[in-house]
């Protein structure tokens, strides 16, 4: 049964405290001692995110609570944490949407913990670096000093576009069941990015990329549990990337699949001026440049 509400019915008083929510934060002091839980009571207003709640705690209740954030709007990927048992960005999780009186917060799994809710993401960046996340082509001179664009149709762009939306928040590695027990596994983030460069038709390094993750702790340790995709806040779908990587490697090794690499767009024809077009009127103001 749907009920339509007029605008006046909707409570638009943003400053009104709607409910009080307990933030149960797992505090870790960085010395290797067992972490302890601490409760904070946060008055919640409409539109408050978990990150807003944490900032409230830091400003009003306990200045020693540590967490990492930057943009507050799901772009920088700094505030990943485990909220009520599920990895998510604190800035994209509405407290009222959770609809709980107690919200448990703990740092992301599978990363060394620095303090409280601040994980050390070095592993993530190292694994990302291992798949060479940049376009590799034989024409180095053109790459370093570009003269023209590489031809790429909108369809060719959309074939990998979603993987470029990765913000390196690291939630996927935190959710991944394989990373949970195998620290050497390359991980969903890197596999999604590898798919991105394997599909991108400007990249000419397909053959080498097929060998990059074809090892014991490479792509074959992925079993399509889908946890990475489930938690990805940007719709990057790393699980799809990993399955595509597997598919491409098999096609490459067993059926000799090659990739069609794009070339520079043809030299553009320079403009010519038609006869008989009247001249523009003279300038009325002096140009400042």
């Amino acid at each position: 049964m749907s009920r339509t509400r007029s605008l006046s019915d909707i409570d638009i008083q943003m400053d009104k405290v709607i409910r009080e929510v307990t933030f149960r934060i797992l505090r870790y002091n960085g010395t290797g001692e067992p972490p302890t839980e601490r409760d904070y009571t946060v008055p919640v207003k409409r539109g408050m995110t978990v990150l807003d709640g944490l900032l409230y705690i830091k400003e009003n209740l306990d200045g020693s609570v540590s967490f990492r954030y930057s943009c507050r709007m799901g772009v920088c990927g700094s505030c990943g944490m485990i909220i009520n048992g599920k990895p998510a960005l604190a800035c994209q999780t509405q407290i009222l949407d959770l609809d709980r009186d107690v919200i448990t917060l703990r740092p992301m799994d599978n990363y060394p913990n620095i303090k409280d809710l601040v994980p050390d993401l070095t592993n993530l960046f190292e694994k990302h670096r291992r798949i060479k996340p940049y376009i590799i082509r034989p024409d180095r001179q053109e790459l370093d000093h570009p003269t023209r664009e590489y031809a790429q149709s909108p369809e060719e762009l959309e074939a990998f576009l979603q993987f470029t939306y990765c913000i390196k928040c690291g939630l996927c590695l935190s959710a991944c069941p394989t990373v949970a027990t195998d620290p050497q596994f390359i991980g969903p983030q890197a596999l999604g990015q590898l798919a991105r460069y394997m599909i991108d038709n400007r990249d000419a390094n397909f053959d080498e990329r097929c060998d990059l993750v074809d090892d014991v702790h490479g792509v074959w340790r992925c079993h399509f549990a889908g946890a990475c995709t489930e938690v990805c806040p940007k719709g990057v779908d790393p699980a799809l990337g990993a399955q595509l990587v597997k598919h491409y490697i098999l096609k490459h090794h067993w059926f000799g699949m090659k990739k069609k690499v794009t070339q520079l767009i043809p030299e553009t024809v320079s403009g010519t001026r038609r006869e008989g077009i009247p001249e523009p009127p003279p300038r009325t103001v002096e140009s400042t440049t």
Partner: peptide, 20 residues
């Protein structure tokens, strides 16, 4: 506690979907 690895607990649960 510094390492903070999920271990075998990461193989199931996590309030995630059917595929896991």
């Amino acid at each position: 506690f510094r390492e903070n690895r999920a271990g075998f607990g990461g193989w199931f649960g996590g309030r995630l979907g059917l595929e896991k």
